[in-house]
């Protein structure tokens, strides 16, 4: 199913604008992530798609050719995984998963068969008769996913599906969730504030901030070609290089960097992995901190920009704090963005 959203916005009765007019299209079988810090409007948009939130007039939500904007949530046929999972504590795992089929009056035999299928897909067969209160966090998440999928929804919506888990579990379940979503081959929208989650799971990511959709694209696009400083900072932690631009160069406290021709009135960013230690480099700085993290060193440098600039150094040896070093940043690795007006 293709999801099309036109002009979606939400204003609360107290005047707070949670979501400013937004357009979005999610293709058949595509997994799209709504990514942004808390309060950016991503959950509001998800709830508008589900029908749990009444959007402002002018909003249009379409499932394929059908306009569902005014269709009640219980008739939209969406599957939703809630942040808290919201499993029904009065029912067993099997009854939870079968609930959507039961309220739709699917005959018992067919219902049992569908539940068994989903139980197997989500590797929950051994837990079918258990009480949901007796499950671990990861198992609960799978039950929530199985329950949402059992009635064969038109679209799957996930609201921070991993945030209720502890950090160690989250990493392993992230890949598991990605694999399961691919297996279902369903159009899916999932909300997260964690860029690693979005990068690992989504086909495309929509970055949101303060009720505005900043950029929509494949993970690589967002990483390599961010359109705003917000996206650059949020995805891959790009660091600003605040300096003045004069005759084709960026002038920093630690030296001059050549820029592409015709650049003026711009903000320049760089990522730690693109800052190289190089004795012949044009920039100079002083090592402040050195942290070893397995495959590389993370080196904090003072004196290059006003703040600490980090460099990822892959060598076998690292300079010591206090050492003076020279640095190189290739012109192609600089992210040159228009000035942020906000």
């Amino acid at each position: 199913m293709t999801l099309t959203i036109r002009n979606a916005s939400k204003t609360y009765p107290d005047g707070t604008r949670a979501l400013l007019p937004t357009d979005l299209t999610v293709g058949e079988g595509e997994i799209l992530s709504l990514l942004g810090p808390s309060g950016c409007g991503k959950t509001t948009l998800l709830r508008i798609i589900a029908g749990l939130e009444t959007p402002d007039a002018g909003t249009q939500v379409r499932f394929d050719d059908e306009d569902v904007t005014r269709l009640a949530v219980e008739r939209r046929n969406v599957g939703m995984v809630f942040q808290s999972y919201a499993l029904f504590p009065n029912m067993s795992v099997r009854a939870n998963i079968g609930y959507g089929l039961k309220v739709r009056k699917v005959p018992r035999a067919e219902r049992e068969q569908r539940v068994d299928e989903v139980l197997a897909l989500c590797r929950l067969g051994d837990y079918a008769e258990r009480a949901v209160t007796a499950l671990s966090g990861g198992q609960r998440q799978r039950v929530a996913l199985a329950r949402a999928m059992a009635p064969r929804p038109r679209i799957l919506l996930l609201d921070e599906p991993l945030s209720a888990l502890d950090a160690a579990l989250r990493d392993s379940l992230r890949d598991e969730l990605a694999a399961m979503l691919r297996q279902f081959r369903i159009t899916a929208v999932f909300v997260t504030h964690d860029q690693a989650e979005a990068l690992a799971i989504a086909d495309r990511i929509a970055v949101m901030s303060q009720g505005v959709m900043q950029q929509v694209g494949r993970p690589e696009e967002l990483y390599r070609e961010p359109v705003s400083s917000f996206v650059a900072r949020f995805i891959g932690n790009a660091m600003p290089l605040p300096g003045t631009i004069a005759d084709g160069h960026l002038i920093l406290p630690g030296g001059r960097l050549p820029l592409a021709a015709g650049t003026s009135d711009a903000e320049v960013f760089v990522r730690a992995e693109d800052v190289h230690l190089d004795e012949a480099g044009p920039l100079s700085g002083t090592v402040e901190t050195v942290a070893f993290s397995g495959g590389h060193y993370r080196i904090g440098l003072a004196g290059v920009t006003g703040e600490t600039l980090f460099a990822t150094h892959p060598g076998r040896q690292a300079p010591r704090p206090g050492d003076s070093v020279r640095l190189r940043i290739d012109a192609g690795d600089l992210l040159v963005l228009p000035q942020d007006r906000s």
């Binding site: 749990l52 219980e74 808290s84 919201a86 029904f88 309220v103």
Partner: peptide, 23 residues
């Protein structure tokens, strides 16, 4: 967490009366 429980029942297709009765 009445709100989440009811909302999840609603997305699964349960009407207000069904939600009251079954959840």
């Amino acid at each position: 967490d009445l709100k989440s429980l009811e909302e999840s029942a609603a997305t699964l297709g349960a009407s207000t009366v069904t939600r009251f009765r079954t959840i």
